[in-house]
Design a protein around this nucleic acid. Structure first.
Lengths: 344, 344
DNA sequence: CTGAAAGCGCTAACAA
DNA sequence: TTGTTAGCGCTTTCAG
């Protein structure tokens, strides 16, 4: 009964038309249901379609309509929980819109990222949402996309290509962190550490710059957005015989590593080190103790992307170049509690 | 210079043909490069194509070829790091094959999962790789897919639909865990706990069954594959005034929660509780102390999927129904060290 | 070695 | 209200 034939040459609109004794136009109308036709005929046709197991061929429809009701999302790395959380949220926001979110991972590889873009362009997605791997190297991919389709940079952006952008106001977020510290720590006696990522993405750069500017005497350790780097950096600090202080991490995934490193060395959070993260998204709920972090308003962001895509159906005169920055919010938790550790 | 026109009505093979002064057939041949033609002409045509910024329209090609060089992957939830790791690995294995992996998240929702399947079928993917949400409820989606396209169930499977399957031998893995315990713990005096997931997926069921069968006196706590459940279950155990023992978790994500719960209550791993996970994939590297776990051979599994897809190009006589189970490997780490805690 | 033409499945003018 | 037909962009027979 359920043995499928390969090359089952799927049933088409023609088969349905033949079986129902109508023209293919009628079948199309019945299916799309947007144009006047006799209700009884529609029902019959739909029943026939159903019984034949007809499923619309979206290649044919897309070719004809010049619209595929799909958007492509290219993420740098699905294994990074921050990005997979963004992907998940984006899918969720699009779920009821009738637009599919197709996801491609670049595996942190400029070459693969480029192929993903080419592939999505070839498949004629209605929009391309791009979290670029690299601030400079991703530029060709972004501008290639921008030439032929509505392109939205998400979370990070490359310089020099004026596409739409939706992301978080990282500078504002880091300023909130610095204000928080100002109230809780004697910044001069006990200058905090910044464990960040090398400035090859706009997020890494923005977060770093604000820290540096507002606290020039702070110490910087730069690596990658990864757990391993956080742990290693914590070791480096402690092995310099610094046994307490404040650590600002550029992302929660780093902060998690820092916590692990601190504990590995037999010290405690927040008693010895107070630790602050960024993102509050992805794995941050795994942190122990609960992590003070800057929460990105993901849902607002992904909804904004949906709006941009839907709105572009109506606005035909070229793409606008707006950048939407969403304000994040510092959430103080156990890893950096609200009692002052500084003493006069 | 780079201002794009909306409705830029992308350049087609006809434009290239006109510009190069040849027929569209020639352009097609030049691009696909599989059929004899004068090398010099080919070069010219390709140059023209390049200069016009031509990109092949994969909808047209797919319609004509009845083949899209793409596979669809439907995962239950990208926010679960285990699934996003599988997705990442699958993409990686397909990277060099010329076949795109398009990913859809079902957001743990049977309805969305069904839509994802419909969507992929409509887009005529060459194969559908499915990690079903639910052992029973996903059946309609799986069998729908199975009717029209090469369908591979991955990691878990639904009952009653004979598709290909690629996954891990969970029963064998759990048996390795039990053997490990047998050597390290006095199972009768100190019967381990199993913190698992309700048996609504084949993985949850297989792991649970082996534990139950080989240790009927063990205690079972069943919830979901989540960090929160692990933590809650740990609280439940400790709040019964059980302050030491062995805990087998059905997945690393649960084990992470268990560790957090144990530490929350002021106890230690492995000194008070020895903890064992399953998967060794996704977030397991975040565990602290390092987690004893059953490592799934993901790379082998995803490569097997690639093989199946590629092989199906050659084998035309229906789909075979083989199930490929890959042997996992217990890796003992700090959370359940190799010194015996049992005393004679 | 190259071109003309058919047709993949679909939707939307245009006719009836 | 329904049918006929063109054509979206592509590859591939079949002629030349």
């Amino acid at each position: 009964m359920e043995r499928p034939r390969k090359h089952s040459s799927a049933v088409t609109i023609h088969d349905v038309a033949a079986a129902a004794g109508v023209s293919i136009a009628t079948v199309s109308r019945a299916i799309n249901g947007n144009r006047p036709m006799s209700e009884s005929l529609r029902r019959t046709v739909l029943e026939v379609a159903e019984s034949l197991g007809y499923e619309v061929n979206l290649l044919g429809r897309g070719l004809r309509l010049q619209r595929t009701f799909s958007v492509g999302l290219v993420v740098p790395d699905l294994e990074n929980p921050f990005f997979s959380a963004l992907a998940q949220q984006l899918s969720r926001s699009f779920a009821e819109s009738g637009i599919d979110v197709l996801i491609h991972s670049a595996d942190n590889n400029i070459e693969f990222e480029h192929r993903a873009v080419i592939s999505f362009l070839g498949r004629r997605v209605d929009a391309l949402i791009l979290i670029p791997c690299h601030e400079l190297d991703s530029r060709v991919s972004v501008s290639l996309a921008h030439k032929s389709v509505l392109t939205i940079q998400f979370d990070r952006y490359v310089r020099g290509v004026k596409t739409l952008f939706v992301g978080c106001d990282n500078r504002n977020g880091m300023r909130q962190v610095m204000d928080h510290l100002q109230n809780e720590v004697d910044l001069v006696r006990q200058p905090p550490f910044f464990i960040g990522a090398r400035a090859d993405s706009s997020t890494a750069r923005d977060r770093l710059q604000v820290f540096k500017k507002s606290l020039p005497e702070g110490q910087l350790l730069l690596g990658s957005f990864s757990f391993e780097w956080g742990r290693k950096a914590a070791y480096q600090i402690i092995d310099r015989n610094i046994l307490s202080g404040t650590i600002v991490a550029a992302a929660d995934i780093i902060a998690l590593g820092v916590i692990a490193g601190v504990i590995d060395r037999g010290l405690r959070v927040p008693d010895d080190f107070r630790i602050i993260g960024f993102d509050d998204l992805g794995v941050s709920f795994l942190a122990h103790p609960a992590l003070t972090s800057v929460k990105q308003p993901v849902e607002e962001m992904t909804r904004a992307i949906l709006d941009l895509v839907q709105q572009s159906d109506w606005v035909n005169d070229g793409f606008s170049y707006s950048r939407k920055y969403f304000k994040p919010e510092l959430i103080v938790r156990e890893s950096s509690p609200l009692r002052s550790l500084s003493s006069p």
